[in-house]
Design a protein around this nucleic acid. Structure first.
Length: 378
DNA sequence: GAGACGTGGAC
DNA sequence: TGTCCAAGTCT
């Protein structure tokens, strides 16, 4: 691994910041220095690309202009504003932190990374980003870009998938951060990481910091950063139940102990739960019979399930891969939902609910198979 | 410390 | 199509 002299560090700062001042991106959250704006953008940008974030950011600030507005927002409005962005606990934590700010901090922002980390959803990266960008604290914001950029520049061999590696990078980058413009320095590293020093298709030959790039000199750019591979998503087979009555479609809100918390979908039943007792592989007909019996017994809902044609709806998450087979039933009367944890939703009102992507796919698949009038009229 | 946690883009 | 990647945090 390379080590830089004090002179090299000064040279690097100037080269980087000159480039940033000339070629840095003009992004909505880079206008002004409002810590709320910086915070919202940084949380949205966690594991999410800039182009995806921009429209969400604009809409979010229009909907919740201040920390106080966010703290007071109702959950459905919040989840709707986040719909499609993914990692939905970010939205929930954002609001909890806003409430923390209003109640525990009297609406006044803490100005250091260490204090910012006490807010829910703000980890070491986001705390440093806010502290440097909004409050000029001289700390490195160590995100995926910083890992990749400095791993290449200095040929750091540590595995960035290991949590412990963050400390090493923080210590290495800390003395390099420009003490006059720490926020610009950190954002310049991010711009570098998303242009000349991308993960898959870097262009190190034309990078403004080519002269500082040890991995380029060694012809080993793509050997850095070192990162162990993530496990494959686990396949999960579900039945998606489209239950219609004169009152609309049966919808359920996902609970706090499952993913997609707070979002609404058609009822989903894990196939393996249908025959938890006997581990026999079941036929589709047997699964349908088991589902009908279960719903009659547990919920007093006498379903007659039929298969919705087409391939199963598939949805890949970071750690799970869902295959959802759709079944439908039409109840002649709106059965009371005394035993079922859900509600009837008229077709025209479904889209007003916060919905995860898999629900939108289920509705599309269903609509393709059905006369969609049923959706519109009810 | 390993696994949970969403979605869309790039190849 | 499959696989990896994108401004991480929480448990």
């Amino acid at each position: 691994m390379e080590k830089w002299s004090a002179a090299t560090i000064r040279d690097f700062r100037k080269t980087l910041l000159d480039w940033y001042d000339e070629a840095g991106r003009d992004l909505p959250w880079r206008h002004g220095r409002n810590p709320y704006h910086t915070w919202v953008s940084e949380v949205m940008l966690q594991q999410t690309q800039v182009n995806t974030v921009i429209p969400y950011y604009e809409n979010f600030l229009a909907t919740f202009p201040t920390v106080a507005d966010l703290a007071a927002a109702d959950e459905a409005t919040l989840l709707k504003a986040w719909q499609g962005l993914g990692y939905y606990s970010r939205a929930r934590n954002l609001q909890r932190a806003a409430q923390q700010l209003m109640t525990d901090y009297q609406g006044k922002w803490p100005r250091t990374a260490a204090e910012l980390e006490d807010l829910v959803g703000i980890g070491p990266y986001t705390a440093s980003a806010i502290a440097s960008i909004a409050f000029d604290q001289v700390v490195p914001a160590v995100d995926g870009n910083a890992f990749r950029v400095f791993a290449r520049l200095l040929m750091i061999e540590a595995d960035i998938a290991k949590p412990k590696t963050r400390q090493l990078f923080t210590e290495i980058i800390q003395p390099i951060v420009d003490p006059q413009r720490p926020g610009a320095f950190n954002q310049a590293i991010m711009d570098l990481g998303s242009s000349y020093m991308t993960a898959k298709n870097p262009d190190p030959a034309h990078s403004p910091v080519k002269a500082f790039d040890a991995s380029y000199r060694a012809g080993r750019v793509l050997d850095f950063p070192v990162k162990t591979k993530a496990p494959r998503p686990k396949p999960m087979a579900y039945y998606g139940l489209i239950v219609h009555s004169p009152a609309g479609y049966l919808m359920v809100q996902r609970g706090a102990n499952e993913m997609l918390t707070g979002y609404w979908s058609f009822p989903l039943v894990l196939q393996t739960d249908l025959h938890a007792d006997d581990h026999q592989p079941m036929t589709l007909a047997a699964d349908i019979a088991a589902l009908e019996e279960q719903w009659r017994n547990d919920y007093q809902l006498p379903l007659k399930l039929t298969v919705v044609g087409g391939q199963p709806v598939s949805q890949t998450y970071t750690h799970q891969r869902w295959h959802v087979k759709l079944l439908m039933a039409d109840l002649p009367t709106a059965m009371p939902l005394d035993f079922f944890p859900g509600k009837w939703v008229p077709a025209g009102e479904i889209s007003a609910l916060p919905l995860p992507k898999v629900q939108e796919k289920m509705m599309q698949r269903f609509a393709k198979q059905q006369d969609f009038d049923g959706f519109r009229e009810n």
